[in-house]
């Protein structure tokens, strides 16, 4: 349970960090809060030659709100975002989901962007990014690009981030008038990996439901407002399409049932949470 030896740089600026990533001869990994990466290092599932610590870069430690998006820098911790005043109004779903992200002690160090970069299929922050159709800002020494959630997370623990790129910010869309949100999670113990996590986003004319913990990455469906029966059918079809499997935590059948029952509940909850226009 000890990491392999590696070189270490504490980057003082994004440019410095990107310069380290340019070195294609070495396996370079970016360290922010380390709450996923260091566990992977300790288990020797990741064996880098160089670790670039971005946690002290001031320009990446900011949360900025514009008209449409909340932009969260790569060094912002989950605890900082959870305590950010106005989160419940700006991005209600994040404020509902953050208490489920790890534990108090890991949120103190774990970052929002680090959770997206780790891309665990059952984690909450990638699920919210997918449900809200947010995006990720990737930067390398030669270019900067913005990928939406579906383009970014390509599968289990895998993303479209190239070896010379790093996430510099995550962008979550700001809630508009008439939007409603809900979040639910089923786990054996609070803070554990979700057996199933559900994020609903309802507007006047659309229902969006994101499911985590079942497929290799968060899955989202969008429907027009449906009748009760149509919704049940749609949720049943969605539950089967996710192709969940049995494991020590739950059976596939139980997971499908959670999608059908709780899917219905979170959508109802989001509908009743819709702000008055």
């Amino acid at each position: 349970m000890k990491p392999v030896p590696f070189d270490y740089v504490q980057a003082q600026s994004t440019e410095e960090a990107l310069a380290c990533l340019k070195d294609s001869d070495r396996n370079v990994r970016v360290l922010a809060g380390g709450q996923s990466l260091v566990a992977m290092l300790n288990l020797r599932l990741v064996r880098p030659n160089l670790l670039v610590d971005i946690s002290q870069i001031e320009s990446l430690s900011t949360i900025r709100q514009s008209k449409d998006i909340l932009e969260i820098g790569a060094a912002v911790t989950q605890a900082e975002l959870k305590q950010w005043p106005g989160l419940a109004e700006s991005v209600p779903q994040l404020s509902m989901a953050l208490p489920f992200v790890g534990h108090f002690q890991t949120r103190n160090k774990g970052t929002v962007c680090g959770s997206l970069a780790h891309a665990d299929p059952s984690s909450e922050l990638p699920l919210c990014l997918a449900a809200l159709n947010g995006s990720v800002v990737l930067q390398s020494a030669r270019r900067s690009r913005v990928l939406n959630a579906a383009e970014f997370q390509t599968g289990m623990l895998s993303t479209a981030c190239q070896p010379d790129e790093m996430i510099v910010a995550a962008r979550y869309p700001i809630s508009r008038e008439g939007d409603g949100f809900a979040f639910r999670e089923v786990a054996r113990r609070h803070g554990d990996f979700a057996i199933v996590a559900l994020a609903a986003f309802v507007t006047e004319s659309k229902i969006r439901l994101g499911i985590g913990g079942l497929a290799s990455r968060p899955s989202v469906r969008e429907w027009d407002i449906l009748s009760e029966q149509e919704l049940d059918e749609a949720l049943n079809a969605f539950a089967w399409q996710l192709k969940g499997s049995d494991d020590i935590h739950a059976t596939a059948r139980y997971r499908r049932e959670l999608v059908r029952r709780l899917g219905r509940q979170v959508i109802e909850e989001a509908k009743s949470a819709r702000t008055k226009e």
Binding site: A39, Q105, N108, K109
Partner: peptide, 10 residues
């Protein structure tokens, strides 16, 4: 001043 895991810190 913040409670964190020493095993996930270098």
């Amino acid at each position: 001043g913040k409670a964190v895991r020493a095993c996930l810190t270098f």
